[in-house]
């Protein structure tokens, strides 16, 4: 019996999709950073809405292109430090949601300021079996010191995920740990959730 032509195309398409997703899951962490950064920068440079400073569109790009590669639960847990275990599952969920929203806003703002800097990707020095690596990149700006941007990544069943970003030696997680600790000291975990929520409700900064 012969397959109708359309059905065999669907099957072929499915096989391709499965193969692609398997390949993606096995994509090396440095290759992943390079690909995702390249894709995002390409959109930033060519999308007319992004060029016009359309915050909504920039946020869409961040949500669809960047977010899948970040492990927000791990990021939040690390930023909470030992307070993470004091939080109830419901509080943890809210913290992850609010922190994710804050980081999306921040990232969108940063991307809106992106000009034509050049990214340089350093070769990855890690064991083939490593499950925790740091991918090193550098932003090169004419006549200025290059800025190092490192991504701490961990291997998950669905591929490599970022759990910290270190810009010029300044770790995102470490920075927020101070802020979170301070908030929790004065208002408890619920106080922190409230503060994050209020910050996210506020008008986006210019």
């Amino acid at each position: 019996m012969r397959f109708p032509i359309s059905l065999s195309r669907v099957v072929a398409g499915l096989c391709f999709a499965v193969a692609a997703s398997v390949a993606l899951a096995q994509e090396a962490p440095d290759a992943l950073v390079k690909r995702v950064a390249g894709e995002v920068l390409q959109i930033i440079k060519t999308d007319p809405k992004v060029q016009a400073g359309d915050q909504q569109r920039i946020r869409e790009v961040v949500e669809s292109k960047l977010l899948p590669y970040f492990d927000f639960e791990r990021i939040t847990a690390l930023a909470m430090g030992r307070n993470w275990r004091q939080a109830s599952p419901e509080q943890q969920k809210q913290l992850v949601d609010q922190f994710r929203a804050l980081l999306v806003r921040t990232y969108s703002g940063a991307l809106a300021q992106y000009r034509d800097q050049v990214m340089d990707y350093k070769p990855l020095r890690a064991d083939a079996n490593a499950t925790d690596v740091t991918v090193r990149t550098e932003v090169i700006r004419q006549g200025q010191q290059p800025v190092q941007i490192d991504y701490s990544m961990t291997k998950s069943p669905s591929g490599w995920k970022v759990y910290d970003v270190i810009v010029g030696g300044v770790s995102l997680v470490t920075n927020y740990r101070d802020e979170f600790t301070e908030q929790i000291k004065s208002g408890g975990i619920d106080g922190l959730i409230k503060t994050l929520n209020a910050k996210n409700q506020g008008a986006p900064a210019k």
């Binding site: 804050l102 806003r105 921040t106 703002g109 940063a110 300021q113 010029g168 030696g169 300044v170 770790s171 470490t174 920075n175 101070d178 802020e179 979170f180 301070e182 908030q183 503060t195 994050l196 910050k199 986006p204 900064a205 210019k206």
Partner: peptide, 25 residues
């Protein structure tokens, strides 16, 4: 503007960023 967007308490954020950066250097 990025600082205003990112931080809950800009004072703490600046302090930690500065100290981390200097340690790194």
């Amino acid at each position: 503007s990025l600082l205003e967007q990112a931080s809950i308490d800009p004072y703490t954020f600046v302090r930690r960023s500065y100290l981390q950066r200097r340690e790194y250097l």
